[in-house]
Amino acid sequence: MWRSCSHDPGLSVKQRTGLLGLAGPAGLLVLVEALPRLGLVNDAYLPPASRIAAALGDELGTAQFWQAVGDTLLGWAIGLTIAVTAGVVVGIVIGAVPVLREATASTIEFLRPIPSVALIPLAVLLYGTDLGSTLLLVVYAAFWQVLVQVLYGVADVDPIADETARSFRFGPWARVRHVLWPTALPYVFTGVRLAASVALVLAVTAELVIGAPGLGRSIAVAQSSGAVPLMYALIAVTGLLGVAINLAARVFERRSLAWHQSVRGEVPA
C-alpha cells in the first residue's frame, strides 16, 4: 500500500481522502445541531440534527416508510430503464445515419430544454395520480440525458477503427456491435449516471406535486401535518438515495470500462 510520507504514517492517501470527504457531512450535522440549539433559527422550522435523526429512527421501523421508498425506487427504476433503452436505441439509429442526424438536430435542440415539470399538467391529464404520471416525467427528463451522450459517443467513432472493420468486411450490424457500441459505451455510462440523478429528482417531484405514492408524497404529508423533523428526515433520505445511486453507477462504470483511457490510467509502454 502507498503510505503518505509525513503526516499520518498509519493512514493511506485513500483513507485520508475518505476522512476528508466525511468531514463535510459531519460539519453539516454539527451546524444543524448547533443553529437551533443556540437559538439562531427557530427550531419549529429547523429542528436540531439529533431530533431529525430520532424521527428518522422511528420512521425506519414503519412499513409505510419502506413502502414509500419502494414506490419511489420503482418509479425511478422503470422510468430510467425506459429512458435508457429508448435513448440508446434512438441515439444509435440517429447517430449512425447522417441524414437522420441532420434532420433531427433542431428538433432535439427544441425539445430537450423543455423542463420536465412543465409536463406535469399533461401527465395529470393523461394518467391522474398513477405511476404513469411519474413515469412520463422521469422518462422525458432522463431520455434527453442519455440521447445526447449517445449522439456524442457515436460521433466519436475513430475513422481508422471503422475503416479497419470495413476492410475486414464487417457487416453493418457487426460494425455497430464491435466498433460503434464500444466507442459509445463510456458516453452511455455518463448519460446513464446523469439520467439516474435526474430521474430521482423527477420521481420525487412527481410524487410531491402530483401526489403519486412515494417519498415525495410522504414529505408533503409530513410538512402539511406539522411533522417537521420527519420532513427533514425524509429529505435526507432522498439525498442519501441520490448518493447511493451515483456511487453504484460509478462502480459499475469503472468495472465495465477497465480498458478505457479514463479508467486504465498510465501504462508503461
Partner: peptide, 20 residues
C-alpha cells in the same frame, strides 16, 4: 472491400480495438 484482402494501417493504436 474485396474478399481475400487484408490491410495493415499505419495507426496501429487506432486500428486495434482497445476494448478487446
Amino acid at each position: 472491400p474485396p474478399p481475400g484482402l487484408a490491410m495493415v494501417f499505419q495507426e496501429y493504436g487506432r486500428s486495434l480495438f482497445p476494448w478487446m
